[in-house]
Write a protein that binds this DNA or RNA. Sequence first.
DNA 1: AGTTGTGTTGAAGA
DNA 2: ATCTTCAACACAAC
Length: 277
Amino acid sequence: MPELPEVQTIVTDLQKIVGDQFTGFVSHVPKAIKKISVANFAKEIQHKKIQSVDRLGKIILIKLADGKSIGIHLKMTGKILLTGSRKLLTESLPEKHLHHIFYLKKNGSLDFFDVRKFATISLLTPAEVELIRTGYGIDPISDKFSLQDLQSLLTQRKNKQLKLVLMDNSVILGIGNIYASEILFDAKILPHRIASSLTPKEISRLHTSIKKILRLAIRLRGTSISDYRDASGKMGGFQKVLKVYKKNGQKCQVCATIIEKSIIGQRSTFFCPGCQH
DNA sequence: AGTTGTGTTGAAGA
DNA sequence: ATCTTCAACACAAC
């Protein structure tokens, strides 16, 4: 569930650990730590001061004093809780789905939960971070994301369905299944439309809606559809203002047409056939 | 009780 | 190459 607004919310929450340092790391799901053993990972971050907490697309980057970054991808169900109190544990983790714990000198511990175990943790050199950035598209929250950028990326992927373009991280970052449907409703464009078929007016509306919806979602601290929580365990607020996501069968708030659901790219897609064209 | 759907995305298959 | 499908895993809901 964490898409750009949720990851941004967590990153903002985690910024309070900047200046703190790691004092230990334990894991009961070693598979989640990529390309390095748990022991080596623990050794690498041990006593390292935290220089910044940032985001690259949906990847959380915790930059250490030596320049390397811990990269965390929450995937579907990853959750990070900054508890403020240190959890003691070695053999059995006290809560179900609590797989990893980062111990901090001043801020207790970062508890990493993940029901489905898709989330990943890696240790990245600055060069590796740049390599990921190179393969990634533009961040739609940044002021640099212009109407021309959107125009050119729609031209690049001209034969694809619009929703797939919005969700393609090599083109534009951080838009997942929920916000793709909500953005397209806001822009009044059908998700099945082929990228090259958009009129200049529609592209302009889409550009406005991408920024508007993502910024609103960040302001509301994300969408808690099932298990997303922020770093202190609280729910987001965007689920209260969803217009189409999971609203199939219900009347559209704008035009009272029944919201429909269809599958695009094997993912549920929601839209209003009355408002969207 | 078995099937279906779930926020992601990389890798395999066509 | 490029596009589509699947697999990683666990659980709730039907």
